[in-house]
Design a protein around this nucleic acid. Structure first.
Length: 588
RNA sequence: GCCCCAGUAGCUCAGGGGAUAGAGCAACGGCCUCCGGAGCCGUGAGCGCAGGUUCGAUUCCUGCCUGGGGCACCA
């Protein structure tokens, strides 16, 4: 059990003994570190409710507090705050138990969920740009976070590979190369094994045809027809789709691998294409939910207590072709069959209405019954300095691969400046530059709260000092260096003994908070809780490092204790950075 | 028009109903015979406006202002 939980229970019992709700016993880290380590504010609210004097109640709580924990001091302050400080021996005891366990004190979840994180979601017609950055790294981080917290988790890329964009790309290629066999309805195959396009071709074609469909209704009509034909199994289109799919996935696997994003499932909208027709049929005939409207099939999802307009969810267009909503419902149906009980959609906040509609249909139809958690984990837009979605100077989107190169180059430059790295092999320097560049990029993005839009700032992603990923990596690297030197000198970590230095005590107190921080991050599904804490751990370590010269310490017990504390710090930092998707170099 | 998100220091952002609202960057000033200075210590400056709930509001509620976004045959 973590220290805060332990203290909260003790104070809860004491409050109960004093005749009020044990919830008042919640103990939190002190906001006034110079006064105490922990605080409990429950006496104020509880006294108010019970019509009693807060300070009297607080005193009664202190009187009935058991002697389970050795307190160094317990005070009532101001109107009735309880200030709590435990003994140094007790801190050491807790730190030791963290060091002894294999999960750094992180508990097991109750209930344990089978979670699927739906993130990344690249459209197969485009190479990835900065807009995909957040979906990828927030999703990756949440996937890892839930895993660290003890849940069963799978990440699904959920590619956009069965909708209108495919129809558009089909007719765009037909406009360019109408002689290809894919477009000949009478052709019986076999179709060429070689793809007629590369991903760069698709990326170039896509904006052109999107604009074409917008300005020329006739083109849009053809794209819709092609989408319909594809979804209804037209052989040439399917063969072409397969090529589009292959070139996209090949490139995307490279991009995601470079980003350090790992999917367990490479599924997409097309994965459920066989389920679409039966699903719509079921919603019409069995569930009595879907109805025809202007030729389309829709589900009305408005509810009597709605305070806002709620448009119906479209299952098919008036030509019978399927949409994003249909594949999302079918995908959810499959996920529930596969017994996932928590589905996290890490998708741009602008799709909030879509998910509200889909979730309503899922509930009403029983596709996803109540116990299955459905959550849209919305994130904000990456904006330019003008407050609108980020564009490069040329007005285009910044490709993700280019962004990665920029940050890697910046990291390499920084490495060139550092004399210490000059004798590293080129290969290692390259690896470090990539790790550091990505560390800066990921930390910079993840440290923003996920729901807020933020301003894209290249300087922030290429600065390696202060509150940045590289600062954390550097802290971990320094620790590794100390532990290496210690091992070389035959020194080993030993039992953690009571801290005597303020910075040492501060570091222990910080490390002890890990379990609560993980819980909090899971609760709000927000990686920035982790970045905030990771930075605090790193700064507390730096302070400790400045104040306590570990390798030169003369008392062997103290030195062994410090080595253990340093080792624990490294484990905690590695755990946090790994959860954020940030790698720690051996040296840098 | 309706709905969602946001407004906190010069800039970029944190902030869980509690005491004196925090970081980073930028500016200025210190540390540096010592485990890696991508470091440590210090200085200045702030909750959009108006109400409400509460012993206590940056936090919860209402209204307004400002910015971004969404509102059935795109995803």
């Amino acid at each position: 059990m973590s220290l805060l939980t332990d203290l909260s229970e003790q104070f809860g019992d004491a409050f109960e003994a004093a005749g009020v709700d044990s919830a008042a016993g919640l103990v939190l880290p002190s906001q006034r570190p110079e006064l105490a380590q922990f605080q409990c504010n429950g006496a104020l609210g509880a006294a108010k409710k019970a019509g009693r004097n807060p300070r009297d109640l607080a005193q009664e709580v202190l009187d009935s507090l058991g002697d389970r924990t050795p307190f160094a001091s317990l005070d009532i302050a101001g109107p009735g705050f309880l200030n709590i400080t435990v003994t140094d021996e007790y801190l050491a005891h807790y730190a030791q138990s963290m060091e002894d366990g294999d999960r750094c004190g992180i508990g097991t979840p109750d209930p344990k969920h089978k979670v699927i994180v739906d993130y990344g979601g690249p459209n197969m017609s485009k190479s990835m740009h900065v807009g995909h950055l957040r979906a990828s790294i927030i999703g990756e981080s949440l996937k890892r976070l839930f895993r660290v917290a003890g849940h069963d988790v799978d990440g699904d890329i959920h590619m956009g590979d069965w909708g209108m964009p495919i129809g558009q790309l089909i007719i765009e290629l037909e406009r360019r190369q109408p002689e290809l066999s894919y477009f000949d309805a009478d052709f019986t195959g076999p179709y060429p094994a070689e793809s007629p396009v590369t991903l760069d071709d698709l990326s170039e074609m896509y904006p052109i045809i999107v604009e074409g469909c917008r300005s020329e209704p006739e083109l849009g009509e053809r794209a819709r027809q092609a989408t319909f034909d594809l979804q209804n199994g037209r052989a040439g289109y399917l063969a072409l789709w397969q090529h589009y799919h292959n070139v996209s996935v090949t490139e995307q696997k490279k991009d995601f691998a470079q980003l350090g994003v790992e999917f367990d499932l490479w599924r997409g909208e097309s994965t459920v294409h066989d389920r679409l027709a039966p699903l719509v049929d079921r919603l019409i005939n069995e569930d009595d939910l879907a109805v025809e409207s202007d030729g389309a099939i829709v589900v009305h999802v408005e509810q009597p207590d709605d305070k806002k307009e709620m448009p119906p969810l479209l299952l098919t267009r008036s030509d019978g072709s399927y949409l994003y909503s249909t594949t999302d419902l079918a995908t959810l149906d499959q996920r529930v069959e596969e017994s996932y009980d928590l589905v996290l959609y890490v998708v741009d906040a602008r799709q909030g209405l879509h998910f509200e509609q889909v979730f309503r249909v899922a509930r009403k139809s029983g596709i996803a019954p109540e116990p299955v958690g459905l959550e849209h984990i919305a994130f904000g837009t990456v904006n330019g300095p003008d407050g609108t979605p980020f564009k490069t100077r040329e007005g285009g989107v910044l490709r993700l691969a280019d962004l990665m190169e920029i940050v890697t180059d910046a990291a390499r430059e920084r490495l060139d400046e550092a004399a210490i790295a000059q004798d590293y092999p080129t290969e290692e320097r390259d690896r470090i530059a990539r790790q550091v560049g990505l560390g800066a990029l990921k930390f910079g993005d993840l440290s923003n709260h996920r729901t807020s839009n933020y301003i894209f700032d290249l300087d922030r992603f290429t600065s390696f000092e202060g509150k940045t990923g590289p600062y954390l990596q550097y802290g971990a690297v320094r620790i590794q260096s100390i532990l290496r030197r210690a091992a070389d000198a035959g020194l080993e970590p030993g039992p953690i003994i009571a801290p005597v230095v303020d910075q040492e005590r501060g570091l222990i107190l910080r490390l002890l908070r890990l379990p609560e921080v993980i819980d909090r991050a899971v609760e709000v599904r927000a990686p920035n809780v982790l970045t905030e804490y990771a930075y605090e751990v790193a700064t507390d370590f730096s302070r400790f490092y400045e104040a306590c010269h570990i390798l030169r310490e003369e008392d062997p017990d103290r030195q062994a204790s410090w080595l253990a504390l340093v080792d624990l710090t490294l484990r905690v930092m590695r755990l946090l950075l790994d959860t954020l998707g940030i790698e720690v170099p051996e040296r840098m």
